[in-house]
């Protein structure tokens, strides 16, 4: 058999076999394999896409949570600030009131003291007057009796008074 002259017997069998091989492989092997590969690739691509989406979702959720937390924190802080301000105000008010009250009381006390003092002064005055009258009376009466005795007596009385 020459090398470059094709043998028709081999040609025939090759044509027949290759046709059958092609047909069988196409129908029972390549189509399912290609189909399965494509399906698998599609499913992997889909899974990856879904994973990506899920990740994006999670990131979004996290951001939302963060924003929410931030908002809550701010609100709380605001509330706190408000409360604090209120408390401070109340405190200041209370202090002021207390101060005023005290002032009032002090004024009242002072007033009272003053009036008491006046009263005491008046009383002292009247007492001194009555005593003076009494002393004068007594002095006058003694004078009548003895001049020396009178003086002595007045001194004695004066001493007594000053002692009182």
């Amino acid at each position: 058999m020459g090398l470059v002259t094709p043998d028709y017997g081999l040609l025939f069998w090759m044509l027949l076999s290759f046709s059958i091989i092609l047909y069988i492989l196409k129908k029972f092997a390549w189509k399912p394999i290609i189909h399965a590969l494509k399906n698998r690739e599609d499913s992997i691509a889909l899974s990856l896409k879904q994973a990506e989406q899920a990740r994006a979702e999670i990131v979004k959720l996290q951001e939302e949570n963060k924003a929410l937390a931030e908002k809550a924190r701010l609100e709380r802080e605001k509330e706190f600030q408000e409360t604090k301000a209120l408390r401070d105000k109340l405190l200041i008010e209370a202090k002021e009131q207390a101060r005023l009250e005290t002032q009032k009381m002090l004024d009242k006390a002072r007033e009272q003291i003053l009036s008491e003092k006046e009263a005491a002064k008046k009383e002292l005055h009247s007492t001194i007057v009555s005593m003076s009258v009494e002393i004068s009376e007594k002095v006058l009466r003694k004078q009548l009796a003895e001049k020396d005795r009178q003086v002595e007596y007045i001194n004695e009385l004066l001493n007594e008074m000053s002692r009182n």
Partner: peptide, 22 residues
């Protein structure tokens, strides 16, 4: 011939191989 038989065996082998893979 030898070549024809080889083609037959190869064909059977290929079919068996790839169908089992499928």
């Amino acid at each position: 011939t030898k070549n024809v038989l080889t083609i037959f065996m190869l064909g059977i082998f290929l079919c068996w191989l790839f169908i089992s893979i499928a």
